[in-house]
Design a protein around this nucleic acid. Structure first.
Lengths: 220, 220
DNA sequence: ACCAATTTGTAACAGCTGTTACACTTTCCC
DNA sequence: GGGAAAGTGTAACAGCTGTTACAAATTGGT
């Protein structure tokens, strides 16, 4: 486990023996979970620091109408809800559910606070993690600020576009992308069709070929 | 100045003499600004911690089409861009401009890092501040996730609604609210008109009277 | 009290998106 | 290999929002 943990952003830069040493001083536990388990509900208090060791989690917001907007996917060895452990209102902002079986390391808040004071590198790592979190959310807001689906597609593709490589491999299906964009799935499919008819791109399962990067940029 | 600073979230819990003592150990400067000054452009690197001492700032995102979305207003003695001082990509997420004359305290990043290590209370305050920041952005996202203007109005009003007090005082005009909602001003006005015709509320300059709170809740 | 600037109300129209429904294709699993 | 499940393409329609333009009301300053 310690070799996984040394790759974790929160324990980056520490030797396995140092990690072992630190964890020896701080009470912690392992929690196992299964696919589709609901690990936390939005609004629930965040009582512990959680580091994902195995599996895959997703956080999604659910509005009053029941629509869901997938905010992010979490892979090991990321920290879960790092930005919500401190602050005035330390509650989960999203429903947290498991997309695959796995396990995570749990350290209760008071113990985690002690961990931060025990090692300056860990503290610095944590500062970076929550700052990254804030920055991620900020980028998410500017993304949602795009009004049209065309703009969202263009921005998304240009983010993943490397000049010279016309193909962009997709790790998510259209349903998942639509949730991420905060739009309806058929609407996304329709806009993709239009962009194909206009010769701007070719959308196949699992990959997109950008046929006219200039036109794509002009959509923004 | 130190009496203002002791009320600042970052220096909360410290005595004025302690603040003076700390600032004596850490190089810093004061920057004055005027109304409508552009203090930072989105994408610019955040090189220093900034604490607003006087005046009023606003942060707004501008997309490629020139549409702007006001993200927040900052009042003294708040910290500016606290969540963007650390992390992989420490750059301003918004255009920062002055809504009124004022001044701020500036501490360059290396000096600020030293400040954090000099006092544990300051460190803990800072952790709370950036966590609050992340939480604020998260709430902003769930707000933007509301699809219709009716939903946004309902949610906004219910947030400020106190049972027993039918009137909600507005500190912003419709233009400003529309920017905050990420919608066009005439569209907001139209929806307000509809809600008035339906007898759900009465919108006057500076205040809103909720005439049917039940119906308002049902909009969500 | 007056004028200028700001804020708000309203209208018509075009454009985009959500909804719903269904056919089709691909993938997965027994 | 075959059937079920998941993913994708498409269509028609209603509904909501942005745009633009202008009138009316209010505010602020002189």
């Amino acid at each position: 486990m310690n070799t996984i943990l040394t790759q974790s952003p929160i324990l980056k830069g520490l030797q396995p023996t140092e990690v072992e040493n630190l964890l020896g001083k701080v009470p912690h536990q392992i929690r196992h979970f299964h696919k589709d388990d609901l690990l936390a509900v939005a609004g629930e208090e965040v009582k512990a620091a959680m580091i994902l060791l195995e599996g895959k989690l997703q956080g999604e917001m659910v509005d009053f109408s029941g629509n869901s907007l997938k905010i992010e996917e979490l892979l090991p060895p990321q920290m879960v809800a790092a930005g919500f452990l401190f602050g005035k209102n330390s509650r989960f902002p999203v429903n947290l559910s498991a997309m695959a079986d796995g396990k995570m390391l749990i350290i209760l808040k008071p113990n985690f606070t002690r961990l931060l004071s025990l090692d300056n590198r860990v503290l610095n790592n944590f500062l970076n993690i929550i700052s990254d979190k804030a920055q991620f959310l900020s980028r998410k807001i500017s993304f949602l600020n795009f009004k049209t689906i065309r703009e969202k597609i263009a921005f998304f593709l240009l983010q993943h576009y490397k000049p010279g490589f016309r193909n962009i491999s997709l790790k998510q299906n259209q349903q998942s992308l639509a949730e991420m964009f905060g739009v309806a799935r058929p609407s996304l499919a329709r806009t993709i069709s239009e962009l194909q008819r206009e010769g701007i791109l070719e959308w196949r399962r699992g990959e997109v070929e950008v046929k006219n990067a200039e036109a794509l940029k002009n959509l923004l």
